[in-house]
Nucleic acid binder design. Structure first.
Lengths: 149, 149
DNA sequence: TGACTATAGTACGATATCGAACTACAGTAG
DNA sequence: CTACTGTAGTTCGATATCGTACTATAGTCA
């Protein structure tokens, strides 16, 4: 491998780590006390994709350990934002459903993010984001598929 | 803001979160028991930039709370990978120096990462990374500068 | 010099994260 | 049906992360 290549990837992962920190802080500052990015992300995922998914499916979507997802889901359930029901197709499994409260929570969070995001969109052209997303997806898919190498 | 724009940024931050998870797992699988990405990142930072930096400077470089950095540094110090000395210019502060062991640890970690990274470089063209880095940096800088908005 | 404000780092408590081990159910082969 | 293997989710313990509050030093201003 070229001498310059390794630092290039390190730089990439460092930038990604920093952006992750900053975007997390940005979001969490706008969530009610006691809610974290993890909670919002799950609610958003269930809305965007579809609810009724299993905890494991959700964990895989974010590449998180299933024990972490158990914890996050139990927090959401305790606040009445999701419901966990048995999976009719698999006695070991459960399905996660959004409650009306959960949908509202997500919607309100998104509205609170609105200012920050439109501000962001005015400074970082969405077209630039569109241009980098395919490479990021490609990278994510490659890392996912070669996880256990 | 355009209806399509908000989901675009969400998608970006989601991809970034997933890549962060995957790259962390990739790295930590190759570190000795008990060491985490945080430890490696600090050692790498001290090598790439320069050592003798203060804990706060390092925390800011990664956008981490200073209490988190205190914890990470104490772990590194306990393993003899760094040394904390008083800051000659500021009695409140300290300077963090790499030990020989610390440099070796980083070097060995990088070598263990070598296979995975050259594999990655063969599948995701470094030129693609070079193309997306400027936008990521721009985004990171914007988020940083507007953190408290 | 003294009072005030700001900053660097730490201590501490709450909770998030994660790996290992476990339980319960599913799927398969005989 | 039984044994075996695999998988979904949880429990549990270790520790990472982070916010709050605190201590010590710096800097500023009168």
């Amino acid at each position: 491998m070229d001498k310059q290549t390794l630092p290039l990837y390190f730089e990439l992962f460092t930038e990604i780590g920093i952006i992750q920190q900053l975007s997390r802080a940005l979001l969490e500052a706008r969530l009610p006390e006691g809610f974290l990015q993890s909670h919002f992300s799950v609610l958003n995922h269930l809305t965007r994709v579809h609810d009724g998914r299993t905890p494991l499916q959700i964990a895989r979507a974010f590449q998180l350990p299933k024990t972490t997802m158990t914890h996050t889901l139990s927090g959401l359930e305790k606040h009445g934002l999701i419901e966990m029901r048995p999976n009719p197709n698999d006695g070991r499994s459960k399905c996660v459903w959004l409650t009306e409260q959960g949908r509202e929570f997500r919607q309100e969070s998104i509205e609170k993010l609105g200012f920050a995001m439109s501000d962001l969109a005015q400074h970082i052209d969405p077209q630039k984001i569109e241009k980098i997303l395919p490479t990021l997806k490609e990278l994510r898919i490659y890392l996912d598929e070669n996880r256990d190498k």
